[in-house]
């Protein structure tokens, strides 16, 4: 029947169970995983001039991960029953649920990240490399599992794609690198007493290099988003409605305006345009825009995905 000849008279209310706090949780785990990966690359990279980056990431990663699960506790309807998740007894937890993998990862990853940070700061390079190698798969899976939470939400067309875990990991890398750039710039500008001009200049070169790395990951992220949107437009009816919401509907400002234009295209230009790519001010603006853009991405995926009615 022609849709203009159909009127909905009565239905039960449309609910959005997972709210903005879940989006914020995904955002914070993403920041943690991304900055941990950058820190490990710097530590394993071997060159001494990369070491400062390793130290910054080693602090930022556990900090973000301690903040992240607080959002979940507030979001839950029964926060006092959260311990039910941590019994790890086969009869009491469901090994098929992605939340179960997540709880195990959220226990193991911060512990390993804190031990890693301890060895990085005490200068024990051998042990910090060991914990870097242990931490990398944990960091990637602690964010990858949030992609599985979204992807296994079977009813929602925007979520239920195999691309989600990859998209989440790549966007985590984007926001993590942006946070690292910000932290490195703060360190370079405000905490460089007692350093020679050459040392400060070498530190800046490192930040510019990180900017180029950010640009490369943004390009990959944009490519994945293009894949997701093209498939949404040609998949099921629910998927088409999800694409409608994101591209010209309710969430187009969040998705096209903030996530794509402000959060990806403009920073991409800034990190490759020579004038802004070699100025700390330019890189600061680019990284703040990227972090706002990734927040908008989490919001539009979590809330936008649940905005297509199911009954």
């Amino acid at each position: 029947m022609d849709p203009s000849n159909v009127n909905l008279l009565y239905n039960s209310p449309h609910q959005i169970p997972l709210g903005i706090l879940l989006a914020q949780y995904f955002y914070l785990t993403g920041l943690s995983a991304g900055s941990f990966v950058v820190s490990v690359i710097a530590i394993l990279g071997g060159k001494t001039e990369y070491k400062p980056l390793g130290k910054i990431g080693a602090v930022v990663a556990p900090l973000c991960l301690i903040l992240a699960p607080m959002n979940l506790l507030v979001e839950m309807a029964q926060p006092l029953r959260a311990w039910h998740l941590m019994t790890y007894l086969p009869g009491y937890i469901n090994p098929k649920s992605p939340i179960t993998y997540g709880v195990m990862l959220l226990t193991a990853y911060p512990i390993s990240a804190i031990i890693y940070a301890f060895f990085v700061y005490t200068g024990n390079m051998k042990m910090s490399k060991v914990f870097a190698i242990i931490g990398i798969p944990l960091a990637i899976s602690v964010h990858g599992y949030t992609g599985f939470i979204i992807a296994l939400g079977k009813g929602r067309a925007l979520w239920n794609t195999a691309l989600m875990p990859t998209l989440f990991i790549v966007s985590a890398m984007v926001s993590g690198i942006a946070l690292m750039i910000l932290a490195a710039i703060i360190r370079n500008v405000y905490f460089s007493q007692g350093k020679t001009e050459e040392e400060i200049e070498a530190d800046r070169k490192l930040i510019y290099g990180l900017g180029k790395f950010l640009g490369a990951v943004i390009i990959f992220d944009l490519f994945l988003i293009l894949n997701a949107v093209l498939v949404l437009l040609t998949s099921s009816k629910g998927a088409w409605h999800a694409a409608e919401l994101l591209l010209w509907g309710r969430y187009s400002l969040d998705f096209l305006g903030v996530e794509i234009l402000l959060g990806s295209v403009i920073p991409l230009f800034m990190v490759f345009y020579p004038k802004t790519a070699t100025s700390l001010k330019g890189l600061t603006i680019a990284s703040i825009l990227v972090m706002v853009g990734i927040y908008a991405m989490r919001y539009s995926v979590v809330i936008g995905g649940q905005s297509v009615p199911l009954h």
Partner: peptide, 18 residues
């Protein structure tokens, strides 16, 4: 046993839970 994580509500394709 329900901890109120609402993941079942988010994944139900018929939106019958509350």
């Amino acid at each position: 046993r329900c901890i109120g994580c609402m993941y079942c509500m988010a994944s139900c394709p018929y939106d019958v839970r509350y």
